[in-house]
Design a protein around this nucleic acid. Structure first.
Length: 120
RNA sequence: UGAGUUGGCCAGGCAAUCGCUAGUUUUUAACUAGAGGAAAGUCCGGGCUCCAUAGAGCACAGUGCCAGGUAAUACCUGGGGGGCGCGAGCCUACGGAAAGUGCAGCAGAAAAUAAACCGCCGCGUUAUUCUUCGGAGUGAUGAGGUAAGGGUGAAAUGGUGCGGUAAGAGCGCACCGCAUGGGUGGCAACAUUCCAUGGCAUGGUAAACCCCGCUGGGAGCAAGGCCAAAUAGGAAUCCAAUGGUGCGGCUCGCACUGGAUUCGGGUAGGCUGCAUGAGCAUUACGGUGACGUGAUGCCUAGAUGAAUGAUUGCCCAAGACAGAACCCGGCUUACCGGCUAACUCAAUUA
């Protein structure tokens, strides 16, 4: 049984954690709808932070939907990651897509990160 | 059956697997609960918190038929006036224009102490025609009278008829309308097929200034309280003085500054505020109703880098607008469809 749980230990919980990722991102992958920054850590598991700006997605219920989508994708793939802090940012236009249309974009980017290894 | 009016309700359902937040317990698991009718816009009204115990006056803002409901309102209920609709019903910032100031394009003679463009009327002067020699008619012109008729306008100082007159005119009369006072009905707004008086004023605009009545102190949960790394030196209480400084837009006013005594103060961060409430359901009684009073039962989201979801299958009417952030009551706006009650109009059948 693969661990697919998503407790608070798997999330970035304060602005310090976010700033560490933004200051020197070792990982930077993106496509039309998402941008992912990441930083290798010494922790036991990967952690996720999500940013969906009001500027990009105007309606609150659409922002919630996209955040859930990103968390769900991370939750399913979590055990495949090396210890890493990720920040996923949503770009404009996502509110026009159905959930099933969005999923390939986020899954592809996460697969890309799974292939990478920490440069020791 | 069709068309319509008003009100109320629902907002995909079920199952399996994997998850999230909170609570409880026998705690590495199980059980329970987990967005809305608008959670939205932040347009009003409150609660709560601090500022001064939240006061007085001015200014400013809001509000505006009457009565009631409510914690309160700009909301709701009932009623009145006006307008629209065949009707059920709908709309209505609906106080004051005889306190003052201002404004009114075009058209029109004139838009406010009314006014004479055309027309109508007699009078004077003059030309001319006719004449029974008294005058009569026509044209031009002058000073007047006239609000009947025409024409302009959204609006032109009551309407119709008769009398009256040179022509006219509420100039007089009748009826209708209007105003004022009284009576009557109504808590009131107001109504009045009641009575009297008045020939009739007082044009419109107050979502123009304004006047009048009523209401409003300010800031907001990033309020405020507690614990507290860092950092800076002050903070609280009492007494004295009435000079200085500061404080909602201003004034009254209030606070601080001085001295003495005491020792904590407070940013990041954390905790709290933060879920028992103007609460919900059922029911009885009072009330036309909004609603109130009582009884019984229930506890029903509480996140904080921010939970309430994903996948699969089945069913149907094929799922819109949209996400709590201190909490309530309203209003407004967005919205796929569907259900339901009462009523109105039209047609058909009996």
């Amino acid at each position: 049984m693969v661990d697919q749980r998503f407790p608070k230990a798997c999330r970035l919980l304060d602005s310090i954690s976010y700033e560490q990722v933004f200051n020197k991102p070792a990982i930077r992958v993106s496509n039309k709808y998402f941008l992912i920054l990441g930083n290798w850590t010494e922790l036991e598991q990967a952690r996720l932070g999500v940013i969906v700006a009001k500027k990009n997605i105007a309606k609150a219920n659409q922002r919630n939907r996209i955040k859930r989508l990103i968390r769900e994708a991370f939750r399913v793939k979590k055990s495949s990651f090396a210890p890493v802090d990720l920040v996923v940012m949503a770009r404009k236009g996502l509110q026009l897509l159905e959930n099933s249309e969005c999923q390939p974009y986020i899954h592809d980017l996460m697969d890309e990160i799974v292939k990478k290894k920490p440069s020791t």
